[in-house]
Simulated scan of single mutants.
Amino acid sequence: MSTTDAVELLPGLSYRSTLPPDGKVHYRLRLDGTTTLYASATAVPPAGRDAPVTDGVKVSLRNSDGRSCDVDTASFGAGGSPHPVTAWAVREISPRNSPCDDAGTYYLTVERADPDGRNSSPDAWETELTTVSEPAPGTTGATSAPEDWNSGPPTPATGEPERRAGGAGFAVATAVGEGVWRDDIRPGQTLFYKVPVDWGQQLHVTAELGGAGMNAGGYAAAALDLDLYNPARGRVDDLGLGYGGGRKSRSLGPLPPVAHANRYSSARQVTATRFAGSYYLAAHLTAEVADDFGDGPVPLTLRVGLDGTPQDGPGYAGQPVPADVFTVTGEDREAAAEGGSAGDGTPYRVLAVGGIGTGSALLVGLGVWTLAARRRALP
């Protein structure tokens, strides 16, 4: 598929499509010269297959002259366990002269990260695309990242865990707030949560796998993969956790308070905390856990902390699209307290990508994506 056949994407909408095992899929965006655009692609490989650790999804954004604005790759990681992975590309209005500042047509390209890798899936993958636009701040603000935030190791949240079943995708992520949250996760399964984080607040997350009376003779070196995404579905940070059948925990690295000026940092974990809104946690238990410990569920605990008093945002000169994407509302806080897991109301469009078919709709919010079989097929 060439850029001539690119399907147009509109900011603020989400789309469902498919990604072929080889080749690139192109999408077209018409952008003005004042707003920043964030585009993400979430790929969902078929369940029940091994995957190269280097495979996943790659996205890139270019202007009409073919000059690169941004590129990002998300892979399955050390566990080699296929699961939903998300990459994003940013067209950012820069204070420096940039070829991506001009109004005009831009092209988003989505492809497999390693289509030629050993054991790469030969099937088309489900994909979910989102686009978010951010206007410039209403007044001239800071042009460098804050340096005086508390970067010390956070103290994990304490207290009795509360049962809170995870959602099956971004659109149906279960809302949680400050506290200790508990669910069971099976090998090959991915659970999604969202945490409302306001301007000026600092998020802390610790993940813990518990024992479930299983054989403790084995060990999965890359058992749990926990990814943190910002409101535009850009990856902020991640952690990996080994598992030997007993309790094990690990925390995400220290994150700064959410601030518009964080975008000027050179550190990915800082620049990605550039706006308020719902931050997403995607917890994946690698399929190889089943090899040593069986297909039964493993206790998962998330300890979520929020420091800092909510502050005013940058005072945008226009309206973000969607309008509430960088806002924490009373409804968001209520859902976090009560555990709301309904869809986010985002309208979806199913795209017919040239030569691939009609684009199969993902099941509710990326589907109930669970592994149907063991990671390795029996001989």
Score class of each variant (00 low, 15 high):
Glu8His: 01
Leu9Thr: 01
Leu10Lys: 12
Pro11Trp: 00
Pro21Thr: 06
Val25Gly: 02
Tyr27Ile: 05
Arg28Trp: 09
Arg30Pro: 00
Arg30Trp: 08
Leu31Gly: 12
Asp32Gly: 03
Ser40Arg: 08
Ala43Arg: 11
Pro45Ala: 01
Pro46Ala: 05
Ala51Val: 10
Pro52Phe: 10
Asp55Pro: 00
Gly56Lys: 05
Val57Asp: 02
Ser60Arg: 11
Ser60Leu: 15
Ser60Ala: 13
Arg62Thr: 08
Asn63Arg: 09
Arg67Phe: 13
Cys69His: 06
Val71Leu: 15
Thr73Trp: 06
His83Phe: 02
Asp102Phe: 10
Ala103His: 14
Thr105Phe: 02
Thr105Ile: 12
Arg112Met: 02
Ala113Trp: 04
Ala113Tyr: 03
Pro115Val: 00
Asp116His: 11
Arg118Lys: 15
Arg118Pro: 15
Leu129Glu: 04
Thr130Phe: 14
Ser133Arg: 05
Ala136Glu: 10
Ala145Phe: 08
Ala145Asn: 03
Pro146Gly: 03
Ser151His: 09
Pro153His: 02
Glu162Ala: 10
Ala165Met: 11
Gly166Lys: 08
Ala171Phe: 14
Ala171Trp: 11
Ala173Glu: 04
Ala173Arg: 03
Gly179Ile: 04
Val180Tyr: 04
Tyr193Ile: 02
Tyr193Gln: 03
Asp198His: 07
Gln201Ala: 07
Leu203Arg: 06
Thr206Lys: 04
Thr206Trp: 08
Ala207Leu: 04
Gly213Gln: 07
Gly218Arg: 06
Tyr219Gln: 10
Asp225Met: 07
Leu226Ala: 05
Leu228Phe: 03
Arg233Ile: 01
Val236Trp: 09
Gly242Phe: 01
Lys248Asn: 10
Val270Arg: 12
Ala272Gln: 10
Thr273Cys: 15
Phe275Ile: 09
Phe275Tyr: 11
Gly277Phe: 01
Ala283Pro: 08
Gly294Tyr: 06
Gly294Val: 02
Val298Tyr: 05
Val298Met: 06
Pro299Met: 01
Leu300Gly: 03
Leu300Trp: 04
Leu302Asn: 13
Gly308Asp: 00
Ala317Tyr: 02
Pro322Cys: 02
Val325His: 13
Thr327Ala: 10
Ala335Phe: 15
Ala337Leu: 08
Gly339Trp: 04
Ser341Ala: 14
Gly343Glu: 05
Gly343Pro: 08
Gly345Ala: 04
Thr346Met: 15
Val353Asn: 08
Thr358Gln: 13
Gly359Cys: 02
Ser360Leu: 11
Leu362Arg: 08
Val368Ile: 12
Pro379Met: 01
